[in-house]
């Protein structure tokens, strides 16, 4: 088994009142074990749809039309719903852009992370609490006992994103899919979250599929990256290759904008 995740010829259509939008066209990519892969592109390029398609989390008008999705050698497209559910959130987990709107506002932080711990690891109440507090400590929350009892709206965006990461990592996933996890955050907080993600990855050992529109993040973290444009992957390479010798016209356009106003 060479790749942890191997996607080939993925196509996703979105049916908007009878007119079909080909949101993702013939997309193929791989993520290796312990590898950090970045998919970069502008809004509407199909990055998020691609990320959601991996575990068939697509919103209802969107549908996978064709393609193969292999995870640990298992064909995710031909699994029973129950088996896919067991993989989704356990072996493959997600972190999204706005933690505030993905966390449940009526549950405390402890209860939400606890749900993942009890569901996937089958722990009972008391050990689950200890496990959750350990996770909160892992994501560098300084007083986990206090945060355990808080509701998401009582925490800042950066804190919520740490909570979200704790929840995603609770099940010890092999693959973490992070979809613009720092886009809603201030730059100083963004730097902290990215550093934390790097540390956790080294510590726990998971593969990271990172979706972003921000090329400076891509440059910072990517071992390999893909550029998406209008539903297709137009370029693939190491960060050095993409930033050094961009091949596709759109990549060059992105980099020109990045050179002007994307970096200091």
């Amino acid at each position: 088994m060479k790749h942890l995740l191997a996607i080939s010829n993925l196509a996703v259509d979105i049916d908007i009142k009878g007119s079909i939008l080909h949101a993702v066209k013939n997309v193929s990519f791989t993520v290796g074990i312990n590898e950090t892969v970045v998919i970069a592109g502008e809004s509407g390029s199909g990055k998020t749809i691609t990320a959601l398609a991996v575990t068939d989390l697509l919103p209802s008008p969107a549908r996978i039309i064709s393609g193969d999705i292999f995870f640990k050698g298992e064909d995710l497209r031909n699994l029973s719903a129950a088996r896919l559910r067991a993989i989704r959130g356990k072996d493959i987990s997600y972190v999204f852009q706005e933690p505030g709107s993905y966390l449940n506002p009526v549950l405390t932080v402890g209860a939400q992370i606890g749900e993942s711990v009890t569901y996937h690891q089958g722990l009972s109440r008391v050990p689950a609490r200890a496990a959750v507090i350990e996770l909160l400590r892992r994501v560098k929350i300084s007083d986990p006992q206090v945060v355990y009892a808080k509701y998401p709206f009582q925490l800042s965006g950066g804190m919520n994103q740490r909570v979200f990461m704790a929840m995603a990592l609770a099940s010890r996933p092999a693959l973490l899919i992070a979809d613009e996890p720092t886009t809603a955050l201030d730059v100083t907080i963004e730097a902290e979250i990215l550093a934390l993600l790097g540390e956790l990855k080294a510590e726990l050992g998971f593969s990271l599929l990172f979706i972003t529109h921000n090329l400076s993040i891509a440059k910072r973290i990517a071992q390999r990256m893909y550029i998406m444009y209008q539903g297709r992957i137009v370029e693939e390479g190491s960060a050095d290759q993409i930033f050094g010798v961009p091949q596709h016209a759109h990549t060059r356009e992105l980099l020109a904008a990045y050179d002007r106003i994307g970096k200091l």
């Binding site: 502008e42 529109h213 356009e253 992105l254 020109a256 904008a257 106003i261 994307g262």
Partner: peptide
């Protein structure tokens, strides 16, 4: 806005 759009608007 997207970076390329930002650059043109700027």
């Amino acid at each position: 806005l997207d970076l390329t759009v930002q650059a043109t608007l700027l």
